[in-house]
Amino acid sequence: MPLYRTEGICLRSYELKEADRIVVLLTRDQGKVRAVAKGVRRPGSRLAGSLLPFTHSRLLLHRGRELDKVVQCEAVFGFRALREELERMAAASYLAELADGFLGEKDPNAGLFPSFLASLHLLAGHPDLRHALVLVQGLLLASLGYRPELDICVHCGADLEEGREAVVYHPGEGGVLCGRCGSERKGRGTMTISRGAWQTLRRLWATDPGRLTMLRPGKAVRGEMETLLRATMIHRLERRPKTLDFLDLVLRESE
């Protein structure tokens, strides 16, 4: 069947010819899909409003050889705050860039869509955006299977010792190092985080996504979590996300 129905979230779009756009969609059951939206840049296009970035919509798509085509589209939820509040828009752009960068085309991932949708709700509505950013990065890594190893040393497999001293984390190796391996590799792509941040990260990935907002790290711990999550994203993406400069700029100005 060349026609198929799905739900999707527009991650971004590119202008195409005079009045069209290529939209990059995260769909519920087809993974990432690139589709042409005809005439969507003309005023009054029926498709335009429901294909704005970060809009959750119901779609009827036509499968094509290179690109699919949007036949019908109806918005389910518009996430206006993500387009009309600068900090939230920047945060959603960051999340969308990550999802777009991590996903191959039409590689279904059943857990990702609901988790991404929950993340957009957090970014749109959470009273503390920096807090929400930590949560959504955690959710994204978990649903992609990129959750770092925090319990045992990724190098020698030893359980992480109890204690109060800082924990060594290696984004490149995807987890923590024990005291011995950590001191051997110090400075070679490692970073250290406090026990508090380590504990909170473990709790972040052990908590049911629906209850994540109960997790309320203090400012210092949250900053450490953010640093670790970003380093992990950059390592996985193999580049610095383009959206980060703008995100940092608007977050700094809103302080």
Binding site: P43, G44, R46, A48, G49, S50, A75, G78, R80
Partner: peptide
């Protein structure tokens, strides 16, 4: 709403 456009034809964001 664009001139010459139909209310029914506009998406919810435009209408709002």
């Amino acid at each position: 709403i664009p001139v010459g456009g139909d209310l029914d034809y506009a998406d919810e964001v435009t209408l709002a």
